[in-house]
Design a protein around this nucleic acid. Structure first.
Lengths: 189, 189
DNA sequence: GAAATCATTTGCCATTTGGCAAAAAGTGTT
DNA sequence: AACACTTTTTGCCAAATGGCAAATGATTTC
C-alpha cells in the first residue's frame, strides 16, 4: 500500500483520513502470467495499481496479428480509459506479462472517491494527462525510425523490462517480426 | 467565435456571462502558411483554436530529418501542452500548413479563466484527455502497418486534409519517404 | 532425466522500402 | 509566353525487412 500512496502523493496532497478512506476502498489482486486484467469485448470496471509485475495492452488487427500497444510496469496505474469512462466495450486486452501483484478499485468505489474526496479529481487528472502524454511520446517516434533504432529506443524507455518478457512481445510492440528482431539483437552486441 | 463555443459547449455547460468573459479574453490571430504558432526552444505561452486552416506539430530528429507528429484541423484547440503547462522550452514546432485563422488566449488570461470560471477546469480537462487519447489512437497503429496501410489509415483519419497539404508532410507523418509515398499513391488508384 | 512444450535463432529467398538524381508536372511572376 | 521555383513522379539499384521452415536452445512436466 505504501507504493500506491508514494505514487499518488507525487501528484497532490491528501490528509491521513483521506488516505485511509481511499485505502479502505481498495482490494488486492494477484494475476498469473498471461491472465487478463481487462478484455476486448467487455467493459473495464476496474482501476489497478501495479505493485509488482508487468502488464501489456494488446489487440488483434484485421489480419489476426497480435499487436502490443504498450507495456506498463510496477508503480503505475492501469485502466482501459475509454472503456472505463464511457462504459463501452473495449477493443483491447490488458494482460499480465509476468505474475502481478495489484491494488484494485472497483468502478463504483472509484467514482465514489471522486465525489467524496476534495482534490482527488485534480490528482487523477494529473496522473491521467501525464500517462497519456507519455504514451504519445513513447510510441509516436517509432513510426519514423528503422527497426534497429526502434529497438534501441525500447531499451531506453523500458530498461527493466527487456529480460522479463518474451521477444515476441517486444517485436509486436515495435512493429517488427520476431525473426527480424532476433537478427537485430544479434547485430547490436 | 461561434465555432469556438460550439466546440467548447460539447464538453460542458457555461452561462452567457461566462461565455462573454471567456470571449473577452480572446484575441484573433492570422497565420500565413509556414509561419509558426510556437517554436522549438521557446516556451509556448498561447492556447489557440483553429477557426480555419491546418496546423502541424513537427520536430527534427538527430539526423536532421523533419518529422510530423500530427496534423490539427479546424475546430480544434492547439497548445504545446508540456511546454505551456510546465513553462519549459518546447522541442517541437507548431506550424501553419495552410493560411490559418485562429482565436488565441495568452497564458495569463487562460490561467485566470481557470481560476475564475467554475467548471472551466473540468471542461478543459475533458478536452485535453480526449485530444491526447485521439493522438495515441491515431499514431500508435501506424507502427505495426506497412506503408500502404499507413497511407490508407491517414486518408481515413484526415479525409479533408489530403489535398490541402504537400506530399512531403504526409510522408514525414507516416514515416515513409516522399518517393515511396508517391509510388504507393500511384498503385492505389 | 527424458519427453514434451515453448521460445529463439538461423538459412534461404521474396518483397518492400530507401537513396539518389533526373525528368516531369504544377505554380506564380513578370 | 517565358522564366524561375517548387512539388511530384520516375528509373535504377542497394539495403532493410518479411515469410516460412527447420534447427537450436530453454523450460516445464511427468
Amino acid at each position: 500500500m505504501k507504493e500506491l500512496f508514494d505514487f499518488i502523493l507525487r501528484f497532490g496532497n491528501l490528509n491521513p483520513q483521506q488516505i485511509d478512506f481511499i485505502a479502505g476502498k481498495s482490494i488486492t489482486l494477484e494475476l498469473k502470467k498471461d491472465e487478463y486484467f481487462s478484455e476486448a469485448g467487455k467493459i473495464a470496471r476496474q482501476v489497478g495499481f501495479i505493485v509488482d509485475g508487468i502488464l501489456r495492452v494488446c489487440y488483434y488487427n484485421n489480419q489476426g496479428e497480435e499487436i502490443t500497444k504498450y507495456f506498463i510496469e510496477e508503480n503505475n496505474l492501469v485502466v482501459d480509459l475509454e472503456s472505463f469512462n464511457n462504459e463501452i466495450c473495449s477493443s483491447a486486452y490488458v494482460q499480465a506479462v509476468t505474475d502481478c501483484k495489484m491494488i484494485v478499485f472497483q468502478r463504483k468505489d472509484w467514482l465514489e472517491l471522486l465525489q467524496t474526496i476534495i482534490g482527488w479529481d485534480t490528482i487523477v487528472n494529473k496522473i491521467t494527462t501525464r500517462a497519456l502524454m507519455q504514451k504519445v511520446e513513447r510510441r509516436s517516434p517509432l513510426v519514423s525510425e528503422d527497426a534497429t533504432t526502434r529497438y534501441l529506443k525500447f531499451l531506453e524507455i523500458y530498461p527493466t523490462v527487456v529480460n522479463r518478457i518474451p521477444l515476441s512481445y517486444i517485436a509486436s510492440y515495435l512493429g517488427v517480426t520476431q525473426s527480424s528482431l532476433s537478427r537485430i539483437r544479434k547485430n547490436i552486441r
